[in-house]
Amino acid sequence: MSVNRKHGVSPALENRMKRSAIDLIAHAGKALNMDHVAMGTAVVIFHRYYATHSFLLNDKFLIAMACLYLGGKLEDTPKSARDVITACCMRRYGPEVAGLSLRNHDFLTAARERLFLAERAVLYALRFDVAIEHPFGTMLAALRRPALTRVWQEWGQAHPGSVSFQQMCINLLNDSYKLPLCLMFPACHVALACIWTVMKVLRIPTRLSDDGVTPWWQEHGMQHEDLKEISCMLLERLYHADDGAGGTVGPVSAACPTPTPPKQLRAVGVKRKAGETGGAEEYNDLFDELLA
């Protein structure tokens, strides 16, 4: 049993706590003008930390701040402790309250001390295993394959003015960081599954290949089962679980997809053609198809 279950933190609560902390990392990172690799690293180490540590004993705000600080250092875009504290407090407390606190010298000194302490706690928890792999490279390489190049070119021609296929893939990939997929799957598998999911959602046939034999996703030891599993997790827990219902690890049960308006998918940039009907129905179909 995980530490959080032992302490009575339900999966739903854990999920919600993680969401808000990752949200903080993303917004503060953006305010600090950090690149996506550094923010990604911050989120991955956050997931890793809370895989073994309790939300009740470790302040998620402090740990998120330490992860962001550490992520910047690890990816060679270090931000000063002061800037990180400022950005995080601004995001969390709002400009008025944060501004007041940050002008207080004692507050800042104490915050720095706590930040350094938390930074070391995170490093010890990770046992200094700090080389984090990211899925971005795999995704870009996959999108350059001939089979997929055709897909996004055709899709772009058919839907001028819409969000591009590649952008949807990247958006989904960015969103995937909210789930602890990095603890369960290699980064390259997540990248491939994101592309696959977008193709499924857009109703593009997925069994494509460069040479007519091996499907495009068959690299890095990727299995069809993994694709389906990651894809289900993405769709179900990322765009369904805002109410905190998600949290079970493992393949989703067939009963899971409750009717959901298609607005959930708009987060990734998926737009429906005019005149197309039932969103929920189609969404259910998609799940059935994935689970088939």
Partner: peptide, 17 residues
């Protein structure tokens, strides 16, 4: 005053790989 040394982190990160 900037926590764990960046150089040390770099060294650890790269040598682990």
């Amino acid at each position: 005053g900037e926590g764990v040394n960046v150089t040390a982190l770099r060294e650890v990160k790269l040598l682990r790989e």
